[in-house]
Design a protein around this nucleic acid. Sequence first.
RNA 1: GUGAGUGUAGCUCAGUUGGUUAGAGCACGAGGUUGUGGUCCUCGGGGUCGGGGGUUCGAGUCCCCUCACUCACCCCA
Length: 434
Amino acid sequence: MKFQAVKGTRDFYPEDMAIRNWITEAWRRVSLRNGFEEYDGPILELLDLYRAKSGEGIVSELFHLTDRGDRELAIRPEMTPTLARMINARAGALPRPIKWFSMPRLCRAERPQRGRLREFFQWNIDIVGLDDAVTDAECIFVALDFFREIGLTPADMVMKVNCRALLAALLSARGFAPPRHAAIFAVLDKRDKLPPEAFAEAVEKVCASAGERETLISISQARGTEGLEIVARAAAGDARAESSLARLRSVLDLLHRMEVGEYCSFDMGVVRGLAYYTGTVFEGFGRGGFSRAICGGGRYDQLLESLGGPPMSGVGFGTSDVVIQELLEELGRIPSQARTTRRTEVFLIDAAPEMFDAVLVLAARLRRRGVGAEFSYRRQSLGKQLKQASAAGALRVVIVGEEYKARGHLVVKDMASGRQQEIPADAFCENPCM
RNA sequence: GUGAGUGUAGCUCAGUUGGUUAGAGCACGAGGUUGUGGUCCUCGGGGUCGGGGGUUCGAGUCCCCUCACUCACCCCA
């Protein structure tokens, strides 16, 4: 019987683990320098927690089980309900705004596809308890701070920004009653995700007349600076539309001031499929060949409350390790040092078996100082040991031989240049970096 | 969950209308005589051809089922 990894899951061999760590370490580094604190929750939650948010239909999309006490449990498919639960439990005690991040392992019972597996890691950032353009901008900034950190420029990606409240106000002013908005949002969000004919067909379905269709098509086309001006003219005179537009402009302006404006672009085609977004929404896309969404988020006003949490507005975003890695592989941007976790700074070699004791002592002394030190487990020729040092990617090799026996000196060889010099053992252990 | 495509060594792939013990390159391991690695040379391990069943004298090759992956839907909390 030959076993294989469960459908939609991945084995992380050392070279895969190295890349995963490289990505998740960047997530943590960026989160912390932007002032966010890390949290986590259990991988199992009550199934009802997800039913409460998404209805009974969600059950078929997640992994669930019944424990021996007949409790219905689910492996978490997302982090937001856990976040809401945790914030609610201490709502009165947490200083606001709450700036938390997490990088949970999530599972969803979906059919695996490229960029979409059944098990993955998701980076979540949330700012809860303050509804202000600054927090919207800050949230988008953190995402861009990460993308810039891993070497992506505005030529590689774009962050499309929109505001659902603005769209809702424009729709209401043109006779689209609020109950119809959810369906219209879902259609508009597909503007760039469907072929033009299919999109036109979808628009047709939510419209009652040719006039409505014209209106929706023209609204959905707005993008970039010109698009913003067109929207501004459309919003003129409507108080709600004007204030939402001012908020959107403010967010974009803040992003420019924070020097990530080059990445950002207004786009009415970004609405987000999820029902709970109420204000600012944004989605990152790769440019060129890799045009899929690479991150997304937005402001949610009632989400926490609907999950039994406090009535607090929040803004957040998420992205997964799967899509990030695929984007970077596609662009060839994963640096070679990110592909290995080996950190052999010094490889110790005995020139004769009787020097092996000295090798052990020196390795232990170096390791205690925090230096990555290795040696061969087999007593073999100097050439073989050098070969092993080379394969281990060692930066320097230390040969313990005649010089050590006679004078207490080590031969230190720099593997890149091939140059070597004799150094007293004590001096080398004091300062192994040379 | 629906539809289509793919599946030969760890990886990338050969494999003649079905015909003897299934191959290559890379990777991996061992050597190239004992104080100098990456290159090079030699040798080697590794595949029940995704799995199961069927047709046939004979199946990696044809048929059926199944599993996994890829793509398009559904969904994307």
